[in-house]
Nucleic acid binder design. Sequence first.
DNA 1: CACTTTTTCGTAAATTAACTACATTAAAGA
DNA 2: TCTTTAATGTAGTTAATTTACGAAAAAGTG
Lengths: 298, 298
Amino acid sequence: MIAAIFSVNWAIYRMNTLEKIQTNLSNFSKSERKVAEVILTSPQTAIHASIATLAKMADVSEPTVNRFCRRLDTKGFPDFKLHLAQSLANGTPYVSRHVDEDDGPDSYTNKIFESSMAALDAARQSIDPMAINRAVDILTQAQQISFFGLGASSSVAHDAQNKFFRFNVPVVCFDDVLMMRMSCINATAGSVLVLFSHTGRTKALVEVARLARESNAQVISITAKDSPLARESTLAVTVEVPEDTDMFIPMASRLAHLTVIDVLATGFTLRRGPRFRDNLKRVKEAIRESRFEKPANL
Amino acid sequence: MIAAIFSVNWAIYRMNTLEKIQTNLSNFSKSERKVAEVILTSPQTAIHASIATLAKMADVSEPTVNRFCRRLDTKGFPDFKLHLAQSLANGTPYVSRHVDEDDGPDSYTNKIFESSMAALDAARQSIDPMAINRAVDILTQAQQISFFGLGASSSVAHDAQNKFFRFNVPVVCFDDVLMMRMSCINATAGSVLVLFSHTGRTKALVEVARLARESNAQVISITAKDSPLARESTLAVTVEVPEDTDMFIPMASRLAHLTVIDVLATGFTLRRGPRFRDNLKRVKEAIRESRFEKPANL
DNA sequence: CACTTTTTCGTAAATTAACTACATTAAAGA
DNA sequence: TCTTTAATGTAGTTAATTTACGAAAAAGTG
């Protein structure tokens, strides 16, 4: 049995022309189906061909090709090619994005990269920029920022620490529940905690959020919408990621959370103004001597 | 002064038609520049217009438009429209993906997500699937896997550890040079080290790679092409990421490296066969009781 | 089963768009 | 100022797409 071991439901966010052809295959007439099959087998050829060449390839007449295009809600053949070209540009030559048992390295590499990109696209659309803005507000006013994450999210927290450390802000990062709890007890009104959790259902982390709020600290969570963690936070930046349901390891959510960190960091530097960014330059220069010089001609 | 504070150099990995027009603006003749400006201001209109309409909009003759298309290495006007359509499809309605001083939360959120997606796309195209395949070969035969990363790459190494730990393989992870060096001394022929470095020029890490090889360990590096680290490794999985040159923090490279981890992990599970994936299921079930139950209707 | 109706499909003509060749104009250099 | 070269437009040619119509096939109907 060949099982799809991880899948991303692409249909959720984009009804690509190529897919449209695939799904409507049964609704087409006999001749139109011939056209559809020629296009599906070599879409790259199709977009560069004239209506005459395509008709000959499908062994139908030119008007049939034209009617086929119109049936797909396009103005005509040139317009159809435009739509098709856009589908292809998105790097989805496959209709299905499942990784299968018998996929080769080339195939699964592409599929995973494409799934990741798709997940980021979905995440982007689900994020509320106003939440980002409020989060930046809170972060800029923080006296100390703590980043917390457990399991797969611990690396996300580490990354956030690394980033904000360069901003010359007091930062800490914990991936250990006991340390988190201790840290919460000592938190003050000027403390800001940023908690990362894909599900927002990790009991220990929700408890940490509650503890922190009892110490009057601000709690920002980067997590799922309507989750217990989101409810327990001062501000929830909710991210919807189409996580691969069959795979047993979270993949796409980390990427989305890391990108949210980048967005927050960007908002942070913008808020602080140009003078502040000189700091970053100095930090970067400080690491330079630990590196091998890059050849000048590159 | 409104400065672009971080930019992604798109030109490196994709000469997007829209950018090509933008950058070559000065090389065009007077009339051609008129055409360029019309296209840049409303590319969406341009792809649906005929050569006659476009000529009228730019207030030039039709052959001028045609010559303009040819100058951009296309076969003619229809071919040009195809290329332009593909540029637009990649989610780049803007010509520039720079974050500006005066960008609002909505704007910079979108720009950063799009840059990240673009970076993943570039990375995907630059990766050699055969290198991935060899890396999977080496990893599946490892007696022990060590993940090393310094600075911004340390969170990448942590993530890799988290992922491979679930595979029930002996894994360690260090983000500290001294520990890395000690670990290298004790390495054996069955040891596999995976080193992450965006630049591949961090002196300490290159030295670690050399030490490990002296102990007959296998060294896989996820890094830049033709870098000192790549040369010092048994196998280099090279990833080209268009890193933002003006920003002082690496952003896109982590995402690309994390995705490479996902790809390697996928290859690993595929190689191990379906029976092996039961392990993953059990690991996942083991964490379940630490979570709040999700409502059934969701 | 014959006949009607509807759908499908192709031929040929018409229209539209794109391209080429050439002439004219503008710009640059001598 | 004249010559040369590059740039642009006009008009004509060619190619491509679309429309109109009619034949054939399929699906109903008495």
